[in-house]
């Protein structure tokens, strides 16, 4: 899983419009996959650090908790209904989003498109 986040980090650096959209986004996001914690620290739209947990000392702004299969389906070019969006994962009971939701919503396009970077380019979902 950490390899995927490193690939996302690389892709983000090569996606100028996302770096522009995220220029005010400097937060740590917790992605929890079947209990495994990954702390993604963004600085002005760049993903500076990916730290694997568990950690009780790392503050985070908001969290997306899901399972590996759900993420694999999310990263399909054309995901099945419900797997096509992070809020879809929540809707179908395969994900949970908590923490400072307003912070997420203010940066929602940036974060959703960041998460979608692992999709094959033929897909249009965001």
């Amino acid at each position: 899983m950490i390899d995927i986040f490193r690939a996302l980090q690389e892709q983000l650096n090569q996606t100028p419009h996302l770096l522009r959209l995220g220029r005010l986004f400097s937060e740590t996001v917790l992605i929890e996959v079947e209990g495994q914690e990954f702390y993604l620290t963004f600085e002005k739209g760049h993903l500076l650090d990916i730290a694997q947990g568990p950690s009780r000392k790392t503050p985070w702004r908001f969290a997306l908790r899901t399972d590996a299969d759900a993420l694999q389906q999310f990263w399909q070019a054309r995901p099945a209904a419900g797997f096509h969006d992070i809020f879809g994962l929540v809707k179908i009971g395969r994900g949970q989003i908590d923490g400072d939701i307003l912070c997420l919503v203010k940066n929602l396009r940036f974060f959703k498109e960041f998460m979608g970077l692992a999709r094959p380019k033929t897909g249009s979902a965001a």
């Binding site: 070019a77 054309r78 096509h84 992070i86 307003l102 919503v105 203010k106 929602l108 396009r109």
Partner: peptide, 29 residues
């Protein structure tokens, strides 16, 4: 969600609304 998210002085309600409703658009679009 909280509908008040989409009308506040410190953020662009239209951009947040668009990002939210994009969850309802099919990847086949």
């Amino acid at each position: 969600y909280d509908i008040d998210w989409f009308h506040r002085p410190d953020a662009h309600g239209g951009e947040m609304g668009a990002a939210l409703v994009s969850a309802n658009i099919s990847p086949f679009a």
